[in-house]
């Protein structure tokens, strides 16, 4: 039976809180303090990945399978999408491809950096 008290997420949260509340204020050296904040940020990514529980990968796999019209392992499907991109005419103008990639990207970003604001569409446009 899995150990549940505290579970992995709760344990991670405790470590992260300790670093943030007890260690960070005690670190004077700017370079070290910067590295520590990067490390705490890294723990945040791990926490969000744990909470997602593989949903991101399963979602990506399903989207790729639907777009390519075939089943397979995630790594294989990614390779197949690469071949599709290599083999099609102006794939960067395919709205269905871009929509699918954006859905996958949004789910990854929600884990890696949910606060990140991607560039917004402007009126200028790319030719």
């Amino acid at each position: 039976m899995a150990i549940e008290h505290p579970n992995a997420e709760q344990l991670l949260e405790a470590v992260s809180e300790f670093l943030k509340q007890s260690i960070l204020p005690a670190v004077d050296a700017p370079a070290l303090s910067y590295q520590l904040r990067v490390a705490i940020n890294g723990l945040g990514i791990v926490g969000r990945e744990l909470s997602a529980g593989g949903n991101q990968q399963r979602g990506e796999q399903a989207l790729l399978a639907e777009f390519l019209g075939q089943r397979g392992e995630l790594v294989t499907l990614r390779e197949q999408l690469r071949s599709h991109i290599e083999g099609s005419d102006a794939p960067y103008r395919d709205p269905a491809l871009l929509e699918m990639l954006q859905k996958i990207s949004d789910a990854k970003l929600a884990i890696d950096n949910p606060k990140y604001q991607p560039v917004r569409l402007s009126s200028a446009g790319i030719r």
Binding site: G42, Y92, P118, V119, L121, I126
Partner: peptide, 17 residues
Amino acid sequence: RRLSECEADLIRLLKEH
């Protein structure tokens, strides 16, 4: 892990044409 940021920006830039 900042690759996700690059991907998010690239898709939006490519959508602009």
